[in-house]
């Protein structure tokens, strides 16, 4: 079993300073992520403002059930992630491992549902590009090119989100193994803590994406 001191790098005074630094670093990284997604949200908002009817049309082609299910899956995974961190804090690593496994499975379920949605979009020619075709429009007055713009934002936003999810499940898998090997305890759980922060962030991005893409008509 590792003790706290073995994890303190040479340039830190003590474990607390190192923990504070790591946690602050993660928060600042998340701030950069907010700005990164913020650029895309700005673009989405601008275009939606210009073409509200076309964006409503695009939104009506979303698979609401799949999106709702995914929202539930991600929120649940955030809960299991938070409980996993808590379990290590109270020195119950075995429970934490199981919770991390559940988080991991939920992450993959999310990606699976997302993949299914993408496949459907491909089949329906809703992917922007030369092969794009709106098919049967609910509102015949809209310009299909503007709906294509909606789908461009859909793939852009969910694509970058899915990329973050892929990175997320990889990191969760790593900290799950580390927890299983007994590297974390109430004295030292920094990697788990900052992985949790990242996971919740990716979750929160989805909480904004879901209404913007699926719910606003």
């Amino acid at each position: 079993m590792s003790t706290a001191n073995t994890h303190v790098a040479h340039h830190y005074d003590d474990a607390e300073q190192q923990f504070d630094a790591a946690r602050l670093g993660m928060w600042i990284f998340l701030a950069t992520e907010v700005m990164f997604f913020g650029g895309m949200f700005t673009g989405y908002t601008t275009c939606r403002f210009m073409y509200p009817a076309a964006f409503a049309e695009g939104s009506s082609h979303m698979q609401l059930l799949a999106g709702t299910l995914n929202t539930a899956v991600l929120l649940l995974s955030s809960l299991t992630m938070a409980l996993a961190v808590r379990s290590v804090q109270v020195n119950r690593p075995a429970v934490a491992v199981r919770l991390l496994m559940v988080t991991l499975v939920l992450g993959f379920v999310f990606l699976g549902i997302k993949g299914y949605e993408y496949a459907t979009k491909f089949a329906e020619h809703h992917v922007p590009g030369a092969a794009f075709s709106l098919g049967e429009a609910h509102n015949p007055a809209v310009n299909p090119q503007h709906v294509e713009l909606f789908f461009a934002f859909y793939f852009l936003l969910t694509g970058f989100h899915a990329l973050h999810m892929l990175i997320g499940v990889t990191i969760v898998a790593i900290v799950a193994v580390q927890t299983w090997r007994g590297q974390f305890s109430s004295a030292y759980f920094t990697p788990l803590e900052i992985t949790g922060l990242y996971w919740h962030f990716v979750d929160i991005v989805w909480v904004f994406l879901f209404p913007l893409l699926y719910l606003i008509h």
């Binding site: 601008t46 073409y51 090119q145």
Partner: peptide, 17 residues
């Protein structure tokens, strides 16, 4: 690369964006 059109006025995008 893909011509997604966000900045392309021909597709309704906005170069000022």
């Amino acid at each position: 690369g893909l011509g997604i059109g966000i900045f392309d006025p021909r597709l309704g995008g906005d170069p000022l964006l």
